[in-house]
Amino acid sequence: MKSYLKLLNFEFNRFWKVFAVLLGITFVAQIAAVIIKSKSYLSRANERIYGAVDPMSKAEFLTTVGPMSFADVVGGPLFFGPIALCIAAIAFYIFFIWYRDWMGKNTFIYRLLMLPTTRLNVFFAKITTVLVSALGFVAFQLIILPIEATILKWMVPKGFRVDMGVQEIVNSMHELLIIIPNTFIQFILYYGTGFMAVAILFTAILFERSFRWKGIIIGAIYSAVAVVIFLSPILVQELLRFYYLYPVELLIFECVMGLIVIACSIWVSGFLLKKKITV
């Protein structure tokens, strides 16, 4: 456990600067989105209510245009763009976290594999770094949402806005519901599936590192088989027209298949690290 924690700390220290930059971009861009959207709405309200041409009352403006809410901010590209950037960064890092260690003259992976600990700890440290980074982004988003909502309250007068809580803000955007699920069960399902996907990709990467060009084909086949195994309860039900399972029972079968795929990926990765990747 101590060796695993040291490796985890080492891996995260290699990523924290990029992590901090992404958090900074997210914070600045989303605050800017709130300010720009609020100013735009207020400018439009002033123009329509106090304009020289065809002015209207406040009530008429609110009836025609409607009050502003945080949902208007969330729907904009300046708000969602940083979220998409963080997701893309995590997806890229899934591959970079391994291939970085093989780059350069002095391939660092060999130093990692020669450490006096089981090689599987290298796998666990890397996959935990990816998971912790993803959860860190989600936690940061949850922290700054109330700050952004407060800024909107400061800028837009009470009569011209509709206040929303964090849950309402999350529910207003489908993409946010994926990264910030409503319930603990959804959280386990979404991030459990994500963990499984990362484990499959890690195994495919290790196949490629072990067998080079042949490994790409083997890794692709392994990934396809793993996905089929995971979806097998649904596939069997659809192909055989066997619809006797309740949704809860189907969900349980999917969870079992997911755990089997994760266990197989860990075992195969451990085997490749111990037997196929030589130092």
Rank of each mutant, 00 (worst) to 15 (best):
T128R: 11
I169C: 07
A197F: 13
K158A: 07
T183A: 11
Q186E: 09
V198H: 06
F124T: 02
L131E: 06
G194N: 14
T117V: 12
P146K: 02
V138A: 11
V170N: 02
P146R: 03
M155P: 03
L135R: 09
A125V: 04
V170S: 03
Y110K: 01
N121G: 02
T193W: 14
L145E: 01
T183L: 08
K153H: 06
L152K: 03
Q167F: 10
K126Q: 04
I169L: 06
T117I: 05
I178S: 11
F195R: 05
K126T: 02
F140I: 08
Y110W: 14
V156I: 15
F184T: 10
G165M: 11
F137N: 09
I143Q: 00
Q141W: 02
I180D: 00
N171I: 01
Q141I: 08
I147C: 06
L189S: 13
G136T: 10
F160T: 09
M155H: 04
P157V: 12
A197G: 11
I147Q: 03
G165L: 12
S133H: 08
Y190R: 11
N121T: 12
M164L: 13
G165A: 12
L176I: 06
I151N: 04
G159R: 09
V156E: 10
Y191A: 00
I147H: 07
M164Q: 15
Q186W: 02
R119M: 04
L177P: 10
E148P: 11
N121D: 11
F160N: 08
L135T: 03
I179L: 09
A149Y: 02
F137K: 03
L112M: 15
L115T: 00
F124K: 14
F140C: 01
L177R: 15
E168W: 05
I188L: 13
Y191Q: 01
T129C: 14
M164W: 13
M155L: 15
M173W: 08
A134I: 01
I127Q: 07
N121H: 11
L145A: 07
L145Q: 04
I109H: 14
G192D: 05
T193C: 05
V156G: 02
S133V: 06
R161N: 09
A125M: 05
L112R: 15
F137R: 01
Y191N: 02
S172N: 02
I147A: 12
L113M: 13
T129M: 15
I127G: 06
Q141N: 08
T129L: 13
F160R: 04
A134E: 03
L135W: 01
T117C: 10
F160Y: 13
G159L: 09
Q141L: 09
Y190T: 00
I151K: 05
L131A: 13
E175I: 00
Q186S: 06
K153L: 00
N171A: 09
T128M: 07
D163E: 14
I151Q: 04
Y191R: 01
R111E: 06
S172R: 02
Q186A: 07
V166H: 00
V166R: 05
P116G: 14
I143L: 12
